[in-house]
Amino acid sequence: MPGIDSELMSHRLAVYPGSRPVQERRRKLGPERAQVVEEQVQALLEAGFIREFKYPAWLVNVVLVKKQNGKWRMCVDYTNLNKACLKDPYPLPNIDVLVDSSSGCQFEWAPECEEAFQEFKKFLNQPPVLTRPKAGEELVLYLAIAKKAVASALIREDEVGQHPIYFTSKCLIDFIAEYAGDQEEASKAWEIYVDGSSNKVRSGAGIILVNQEGTQIEVSLKFEFPASNNQAEYEALIAGLKLAKEVGATKVIIFSNSQVVTSQINGEYQAKDPNMKRYLEKTLEHLRQFLQTEVRHITRELNNRVNALSKLASTKPGENNRSLIQETLQKPSVTKTDSKPDVLSVSGLDLRWITPLVEYLKFD
C-alpha cells in the first residue's frame, strides 16, 4: 500500500508447500471490455496499488460485471490461490493489537478485555431462541433509537427470566422510508436468470428468481416437445415471467446468455423466423404486465447455475430433488400456424389432365 514502508509492515501469502500453481488460459475480451480493463488497470498503476511484474506461476483472468448504473466492475477470482494458502494464524485480539501498534495507537489487552471477549463469544455461541407467546399473556416491547439506526424487541417474562418473541434492527433511513408508505420501496423487484438447453434427446430450461431479501427460487423445466436453442431460451424466459407474476413482482430484471434473444427483445436484432416472431410477441406481452422491466445479456460463465439446471432438464429424466422445483412443459407456449398456399383461379384454358389437381387445391 502506498505510504507504508515494507520494513514496517508487509503482507505475504502463506502458500502451502508443494501447492501446484494454477495458470488460466487467456480469455479474449471485446473492444469495450478491453478498454474498461485497460483504464482500470492504468488507474491502479497510477495510484501505486499495483505494479507490473512478470510472474508466470499464478495467472488468472479478470471478469467484468456491469453494475445497475451502467458502469463496469472489474473482479479477480482468487479461488484457486485461496485454496493454496494457509489460514491466518493470528487470533482476533492479537491481530487488532498488531494493526493498532503499527498505526501509532497503543492498546493494552487487559484481563477485563479478555473476560468481556470470552463472554461475547459465549453469547454468540448460544443465541437466544425465539419463543411463542401464550394467549392473554402480557408482553414487553423494548425500543432503541440511535442517530442512524432503530431496533426493537418483543419480550415475554416468566419466573425463569425474559424470552424474546421477535426483534428487528434497521437503518433509520430505511425504517422511515418503509413506514412512510414509499411506493417505490414497496414495489417488489425480482431478478430472473434464464437459460435454455436443447439436444437430440430432449430439451429443457433452467430458471432462477432472486429478490432483494435474498429469497431464491430455482426451477428445472423439462420439455415434452422438440425445441431449438432459441426456442428453449424463449420458453425459459416466458416461464420465468409467469413465475415472477405469481410471486407478486412488479419490477423484473432478466439475465440471459443468449445474445440473439436478448437483442431481439431489446429491438437490436430483428426476428425474421415466423416462429421466433410469435415467441417475441408472446414475451413482450408478458413484459407489459410489469411496471418496470429490463433485459440484460450476460456471459455463460456468469450464468453457470441456471445453465446447470437447464442441462439437468434436458439430459436426465425427472427425478425427485428437494432442493429445486422440477416441472414439465407439455406443449410450446406458441403454436405454429401453417398458412395455405395461394391458388389463382384460371379459366378459359384447356388444362386437360391438370384440371383435377387445380380443382383439388382450390377447394381444399
Rank of each mutant, 00 (worst) to 15 (best):
E213M: 12
G214K: 07
I217L: 14
I217F: 06
E218D: 09
V219I: 15
L221V: 04
L221R: 06
K222P: 00
K222E: 08
K222W: 02
S228L: 08
Q231W: 02
Q231D: 04
A232L: 09
A232D: 03
Y234C: 07
Y234G: 03
E235M: 08
E235A: 06
L237Y: 01
I238R: 01
I238L: 15
I238D: 02
A239L: 08
A239I: 03
L241A: 03
A244M: 09
K245A: 12
G248I: 08
G248R: 10
G248V: 09
G248F: 08
G248W: 08
A249K: 02
T250W: 03
I253Y: 04
I253G: 00
F255C: 04
N257D: 15
N257C: 11
S258M: 10
S258T: 09
Q259W: 03
Q259Y: 04
Q259M: 14
V260I: 15
V260T: 11
T262N: 03
T262E: 04
S263V: 05
Q264H: 13
I265H: 01
I265E: 02
E268T: 12
E268N: 10
E268M: 12
Y269Q: 04
K272A: 08
K272I: 09
D273R: 08
D273I: 07
K277H: 03
K277G: 05
K277M: 14
Y279S: 03
L280N: 02
E281V: 14
K282A: 15
T283M: 06
T283A: 14
L284G: 00
L284M: 13
L284V: 10
H286V: 10
L287F: 03
L287Y: 02
L287Q: 04
Q289S: 14
Q289L: 15
F290I: 06
Q292R: 13
Q292F: 10
Q292Y: 09
T293C: 07
T293V: 14
T293W: 02
T293L: 02
E294D: 13
E294H: 10
R296S: 09
H297C: 11
T299I: 06
T299C: 10
N303V: 06
N303L: 08
N304A: 14
N304E: 15
N304Y: 11
V306D: 01
N307D: 15
N307V: 11
N307C: 12
L309M: 09
L309V: 06
L312P: 00
L312A: 06
L312I: 05
A313S: 11
A313L: 10
S314E: 07
S314N: 07
K316R: 13
K316Q: 14
K316Y: 11
K316G: 00
P317T: 10
P317R: 09
G318D: 12
G318P: 05
G318T: 12
E319Q: 14
N321Y: 09
R322C: 05
S323Y: 11
